[in-house]
Simulated scan of single mutants.
Amino acid sequence: MHSHPPAAPGPSHTLPAGVGDDASWVLRSRSVSLERPVVMGILNLTPDSFSDGGRFLHPGAAVQQARRMVAEGADLIDVGGESTRPGADPVSAEEEAERVGPVLRALAAELDVPLSVDTRRASVARAALDAGAEIVNDVSGLSDSGMAGVVAAAGAGLVLMHMRGTPRTMQSLTDYGDVVDDVAAELSASLERADAAGIGRERIVVDPGIGFAKTGAQNLELIAGIGRLRARLGRPVLLGASRKAFIGALLGGVPADARDAGTVGACVAGLARGARLFRVHDVRGARQALDVAEAVFRAGRMAP
């Protein structure tokens, strides 16, 4: 894996919230340490993603961007071939696989960081794992009946994200009682599907699905409630807030490409609440901010 300066050593009681027996995430051929914040760089191979659609459609441009993110401190690269922004139209499984396959093969041959495929479809996941991916990032929480079996057979890592409906319908499905409790309950059902397929818990991290079937206020409640999610589900939490609409709204309507500073704020707040993995567009800013915040939090825990 790409190496970074290690976090300051200290006795076990100084580890950040959520780090303990599950201080690593087990993938196909290696483990990712969670004893320091893990940054997942976003690589969208789509013409219509809300932030960077169309920028990395050519495999050469995609590989160059992945190289840049690793140089800036990305621990993982997450490759997606279908936009899941609110209102997005689906693409065929064949087209999605054709987008991600060549790029994953090129990245697997060149980079030494684990690769993730962002997909809801078992057939795309299978092709991506064959092309070199080690992680399936499923925004639908195993809605495809074949997905859990594909992940289990490959021994892959899995991100289970919370979403209701589809990208076209999800923003009409924001009726919750207590949003943190309800998201935890629905993610728990996804974990049970993973268990039934034989996916070990050590291979799974959970994602509350910021912006997916959530209002702006609910997104804030979920970030504030990450500690509760972690306690309820017993798995490390990934936060994917990068450049999302609630950040733009909080900042007076700034466009997606002007939300990186706000994203850093969300990441640091999530870190303070116990998140250990962060999916971002701007790797350099998130990496630096999270490393500094982590050092401060550790120093506080080590103080008498």
Rank of each mutant, 00 (worst) to 15 (best):
M1P: 12
S29T: 15
S31F: 02
E35K: 02
M40N: 03
G41S: 10
G41I: 14
P47S: 07
D48Y: 02
G54E: 07
H58T: 05
G60D: 15
A61H: 07
Q65H: 14
A66Q: 05
A66C: 11
A66F: 08
R67Y: 00
L76Q: 09
G80V: 13
S83P: 07
R85L: 10
P86V: 11
A88F: 05
E94Y: 08
A97P: 04
P102G: 07
V103Q: 04
L104S: 09
D112M: 06
V113C: 09
V117N: 07
R120A: 14
A127P: 03
V136L: 06
D138P: 03
G141Y: 02
S145G: 15
V150Q: 05
G157E: 02
V183M: 03
A184L: 01
A185D: 12
A185R: 14
S188N: 10
S190P: 06
S190M: 09
A196D: 03
I199P: 01
E202G: 01
I204Q: 02
A217S: 14
L222G: 09
A224V: 07
A231L: 03
L239Y: 04
G240R: 07
D260T: 07
G274H: 06
Q288G: 12
A289Y: 13
V296P: 11
A299L: 11
A299V: 08
G300N: 04
